[in-house]
Each structure stands twice: as C-alpha cells, then as structure tokens.
Design a protein around this nucleic acid. Structure first.
Lengths: 197, 197
DNA sequence: ATTCATGTCGAACATGCTGTTCAGTAACTA
DNA sequence: TAGTTACTGAACAGCATGTTCGACATGAAT
C-alpha cells in the first residue's frame, strides 16, 4: 500500500466530475455551472463530490496541472524558428494549439473567461518570456525600458490577440496572427506603416 | 411633473447604494459582496433595493456611465502632446488618472478585477484607438497588418501594463510607464535594445 | 474466495442568499 | 394641505451550499 496506486473508484469518480465540468462549461459557462449541475451530470453523490474537492473552483484547478503540462509541450518546439531572434513568445504554436481546441479555449479564456485559467496561461507565458529575455539581456545588454514591464507588455498584447481571435471565430489563420504579432512587437507601429525611422 | 426632476428620496437611496457598493468592493471585493451586505451598509430596505435595481450587477453598471464620462474627460486632452504622431492611446493621462485613485481602480481592474469594468475601459480605449488609427490610415495608407488586430494589440498591451502597475503598487511614475509604452509600441523590441534595424 | 478497508450513495439538515410580495408608514411635490 | 410616491420590515418560497450519517457496494490483499 501507499504505493501511489489510486483506487479505481477514485479514478472513475474524478474522471466523471472533470468531464462533467468541461461539458457544462461548454454548455452554459463556468459561472452559471453549479455543484448541483456537476454531480447531476456526472451522476455522482453529493457527499462524494465533497470527499474529493472543496468546491467547484477546487475541481477546476485540479485539472489545470494537465492543461499546463499539455500546453508546455505544445509550445516548447516553437522557439528555434528561423528569424526568431527577437521572438520571446511561442505565439505561432499558441495560436495553432488553441485554434485546434477553440471551443474549449474560447469558453475558458474568451469573452467572460475563467479567471484562474487565464491567469495560468498568463503566468506560463510570462515565465517563458522572462527566461528568454534574460538570455537576450546577457547577449545584448540592458534595454532602455524595465525588463519586467517589457514582459508584461508582450504577454498582455499576445493574450489580447489570442482572446480576440478566438472570440471572433478565428478570422485569420494562425500563421498570419503570429506574423502580425511579430511585426508589431519587433518593429513597432512605425514600421508596419512602411517607415524606416 | 414629468419634468425630469427626480424625487429626493430616490436620489438619496441610489447614492447610498452606490456608496455602499464602492465601500464594500474596496473592503472585500466585488465577488464576495452580497446584496445583503449592500443594503445593510446602505441601511436601506431589501424591497427598496429591488425597486431600483435588478441585482448587484445592475447596480454596478448603473454607475459605469459616470466612470466612462469622467474617464473620457480626463483622457481627452492627452492626444496633442508633442511627438505623439504614432500615439494612438492616451496612455499618460490614463496612468495619471488611475494612479490618483489607485485604490479604487486596483479593486476594479487589478488582480481579480471586475469583468464588466475592465470591459468598459477596454471598449472605450478601443474606440479611441480605432478612430485615431483610421485617421492615420487616411494620411499614410494601409499598414501591412489588419488594423483591427493592431488596435487589439495596443489596447491589450496598455491594459496589461496598467493592471500590472496598479497591482504592483505603481513602482514607476506615470511618465515612465507612458514612455515605456510609447517606445515599445512605436519602435518595437529591437529598438529598445539599441538596434537601428 | 473470503476478508477487510475504503469509496460511494442518498437522504436529511442547517445555513445563507435571492428575489417577491404586501400592508403600513413616511416623505416629497404641487 | 392633499395626494402621490417612495420606503420599511417582515414574511415567504426557492435554490445552492457544505456537512453528517448509516447502509451499501466495490475494490485490494491474502
């Protein structure tokens, strides 16, 4: 015992609850989903729910580790792309990955998204950008603006593009969104109007 | 009658409810504030509350018109600043204005902010930037990226800087935040590292 | 296969907030 | 001052929460 083995019944119950939550988020949104809904949908006893999770939020967060992991893997291979010298964020992979599961991601980070999910993705991207920026600083010296502010700027802009893109039914392909993001971040507004400055 | 005059009692009640809501938002956050809290704090009867507003959200939104108006006035004079050719957003005025009432704005748009408030400010900034961008396009022709995406990018980045700044106790003066935002938007990441590109 | 631990069920319960109703009372307007 | 309008306060039904408990079912271990 104590061998890390989890009782089949426990696995089953947790799976049912997670699936029910995702279903309901897609159907009626996170906020309007109640614990009552979840246990009805999962066909699980009320007391069973509270034996596993503190509340709705706790259930959601227990599924976030998986999301983070999955996202991390999908985003990892995007760094070494050609001409990526100034690219501090895996934007192409992000657009592609979220676009593939756009129903889910739209429900989770679009419109009135789920705060804790947005925060999770935000933090992951921030950590990523911060690391690459540190590297860049080592190579090229300090930029003329506070690095932390720069990271906030980049992540904020990317998250805005992403949620807008999902909310508006992905009117451009991931490649174009990535391209646009790159041009704006690297060269700025002046350059996209054809200025050499 | 029907002369636009509002009964003093009505004015009084609404003022009490609005004040109570703001108080409670600052004290315990919007989400944790209940209608019960509000009417207790305002010392107003339960039925009176529902005679004026549908629910907590309705009360909040009824106060948003004022915020929008006030914000609009404070932000209006920031456009014609020197060297503002590429500046599509009144960032300096925004940092100054929110910084002055940072307790309130932090509670409303920082950390776990209030969705509808964030959306209101976001929309106001978006409309502002969109208008200036149209003007710029008339002068200089089409940029090489979709204008709507550009607006989303700029507003998203600015909102990110603003919330970060408020959440972190305004570690830089408004002028520096504005300056940083300008440099990143206008010239991009490459330029802040001293590249001429 | 039997045993024993553990998970689940389902019902009941106290609690708290919501939104509505209504008769009585107070305050404002004209 | 008269008449309209707003507020009060209490009561009510509805619903979701989170807890508890004994009965039951299913798993793991020998």
């Amino acid at each position: 015992m104590a061998k890390g083995k989890v009782d089949r019944r426990v696995q089953r119950t947790r799976q049912l609850l997670h699936d029910a939550l995702i279903d309901l988020i897609l159907e009626k949104g996170y906020d309007r989903t109640t614990v009552q809904d979840i246990i009805d949908r999962a066909n699980v006893g009320r007391s069973t729910f509270y034996a596993h999770y503190l509340d709705k939020q706790d259930l959601l967060e227990s599924g976030l580790a998986r999301l983070r992991e999955e996202l991390g893997q999908n985003l990892a291979g995007d760094d070494g792309a050609e001409g990526a010298e100034w690219m501090l964020l895996p934007s192409l992979a992000l657009f592609r990955h979220t676009g593939q599961q756009h129903h889910l991601f739209r429900a989770m980070i679009g419109g009135t998204g789920i705060d804790v999910v947005v925060k999770t993705i935000d933090e992951a991207l921030t950590a990523h950008a911060q690391a690459l920026l540190d590297q860049l600083i080592a190579e090229r010296g300090q930029p003329c603006v506070p690095p932390r502010v720069m990271v906030t700027y980049l992540v904020g802009a990317l998250m805005a593009l992403l949620t807008w893109w999902l909310d508006n039914d992905m009117p451009y392909p991931p490649e174009q969104m990535d391209q646009t993001f790159r041009e704006l971040t690297v060269s700025g507004v002046a350059a996209v109007f054809g200025e050499t400055q």
